[in-house]
Amino acid sequence: MTSTRVAVLVGSLRADSLNRRLAEGLVASAPEGVELQIVDGLGDLPFYNEDIDGETPPAAAVRLRESVAAADRVLVVTPEYNGTMPAVLNNAIDWLSRPYGAGALVGTPLGVVGVTPTPYGGRWAHADVVRSAGVAGASVIEDVTVSQSALDVDPLTDPEVQERLASAVRRLVDVAPVAA
Rank of each mutant, 00 (worst) to 15 (best):
Ala71Thr: 07
Glu35Ser: 10
Leu75Val: 01
Ser139Lys: 04
Thr56Asn: 12
Tyr48His: 12
Thr4Lys: 04
Ala15Trp: 06
Gly54Arg: 13
Arg21Lys: 12
Ala61His: 00
Leu36Thr: 04
Asn82Pro: 08
Glu32Phe: 04
Glu32Asn: 10
Asn91Leu: 06
Val144Gln: 05
Ala87Thr: 14
Asp158Trp: 02
Val112Asn: 03
Ala136Leu: 04
Val144Cys: 08
Pro119Gln: 14
Glu160Pro: 00
Val8Cys: 03
Val62Ala: 04
Ala61Arg: 00
Ala179Trp: 15
Ser17Glu: 04
Val76Ile: 13
Ile141Ala: 06
Arg20Val: 10
Gly83Cys: 04
Val113Cys: 03
Leu42Phe: 07
Met85Asp: 00
Val115Lys: 00
Arg131Val: 07
Asp53Gly: 07
Ala23Ile: 09
Tyr81Ile: 09
Glu66Tyr: 00
Val62Asp: 01
Asp152Glu: 13
Gln162Cys: 11
Ile93Thr: 03
Val140Ser: 00
Ala168Met: 05
Asp152Pro: 00
Tyr120Gln: 11
Ser17Thr: 05
Ala176Met: 09
Glu35Lys: 08
Val175His: 07
Val144Asp: 04
Tyr81Arg: 13
Glu50Asn: 08
Ser29Ile: 03
Ala15Gly: 09
Met1Val: 09
Leu9Met: 11
Gly43Leu: 11
Arg14Ser: 05
Glu142Arg: 14
Leu18Gly: 12
